[in-house]
Design a protein around this nucleic acid. Structure first.
Lengths: 209, 209
DNA sequence: TTAGAATTGTGACAATAGTCACTGTTCACC
DNA sequence: GGTGAACAGTGACTATTGTCACAATTCTAA
């Protein structure tokens, strides 16, 4: 899709022109690692299509999904990291085939001064991501695994825009920092409760989940 | 202490002058609620002395400590909330008697443009708080309660600047979203392991904790 | 000084989550 | 069509955390 068209209600025309001139258009395929923990942030991504998955890893390779970056969105942590050239604390992976604009970090500062819509976009993004992290904290601190699983499935469904989730139980367990058997059992229980249907590598969410 | 003196290495003189002219000097005592969940952010606090405790609550009143705001620091979430006039998602309580500068949120934007040190302070604060939230997530997602307790005690000690922690087991359990009996038992175990000493309403951390 | 409140200690048990071992099923590919 | 890999189901067990009940201790304030 035409970038100017997609963003014309968000950014001023002069900024859209800058996008055209200075941002690189990047396409990645499912599973590609866009940014790993410890890597220096070199560009700010603005998603055009597809979804990026942002997650946290511990020292033993355990993963925890933090949030998704959907089209027209960006990741707050790149803003703050790049402005001070710090390495990334999180991992960004393409959830499916995705396109994004890569904006050189050197423009951040200039644009913040020059374009009110950019400043507002940055602030909105930071706020939104703070709230996502708080939601994640709520989940793991206050909720049991069965409720967390339901929340996870709903978020995944929202991010991909479909009630068909193409993941193995093992993959789900990994993203939730849990174990396969436990997730299998909980999913089975949800199926018995008519909340979803289980297939191989696929889960169909039903309306009363 | 003189404000100009305390901040002269952080902010430019013109900005310090603005502090003197436009910021309110507020003193609160231990336990005072500076900002509750749902309240609109009206000022940006910059701590002069004492410590603020930032925590998250669930719908049933369970609490989880997120991080502390120490002298010369501020809370990132007020920045982003106030710039768009959103209600607060977290609770801020005075950990002990504390003084802070209250900066009217209307100045935020102007100062961001005018004072490079202010912009840098804001960005640094946002980055630091993101990382604190990630550390909190690491703790609850990847660590067992005994490790979390040790981490909690060390952070508390760092925040208050002493190895004497004046809290009941119940208070600790609350801040960690756990239960009193469990915390009591874990503390007892740490005492047996010569990591700390237990008294009524007080814990003395030993050097090999 | 003494009653009541707050704090701490502890045993018994329940609930939740994780691990191990093994089975059966489905799929891809030669 | 057959074979091995990936995926899913399940029972048995363990570990961790939470809950309940109650005792013991210490503090506070009348």
């Amino acid at each position: 899709m035409n970038i100017t068209e997609q963003f014309k209600h968000i950014f001023e025309p002069e900024l859209l022109k800058e996008f055209e001139d200075k941002a690189k258009h990047i396409t990645v395929k499912e599973g590609d690692i866009i940014l790993d923990i410890g890597q220096t942030v070199r560009v700010i991504p603005i998603v055009l299509s597809g979804t990026l998955k942002i997650s946290r890893m511990d020292d033993y390779g355990h993963e925890l999904l933090l949030y998704y970056v959907s089209p027209k969105e960006s990741c707050a942590m790149t803003f703050t990291c790049c402005m001070q050239q710090f390495p990334s604390e999180v991992k960004a992976v393409a959830e499916d085939e995705a396109e994004f604009l890569a904006i050189p970090i050197s423009l951040m500062d200039e644009w913040m001064m020059k374009y009110p819509t950019w400043k507002s976009f940055v602030m909105k993004t930071i706020r939104a991501r703070f709230n996502e992290l708080l939601k994640t904290i709520d989940q793991i601190a206050f909720q049991k695994l069965d409720e967390r699983l339901i929340h996870y499935l709903k978020e995944k469904s929202k991010a991909t825009g479909t009630s068909l989730i193409n993941l193995s139980h093992e993959q789900i367990a990994n993203e939730m920092a849990s174990s396969r058997e436990v997730i299998s059992r909980l999913l089975k229980k949800l199926e018995n409760d008519k909340k979803l249907l289980l297939y191989r590598n696929q889960i169909k969410l039903l309306k009363d989940l």
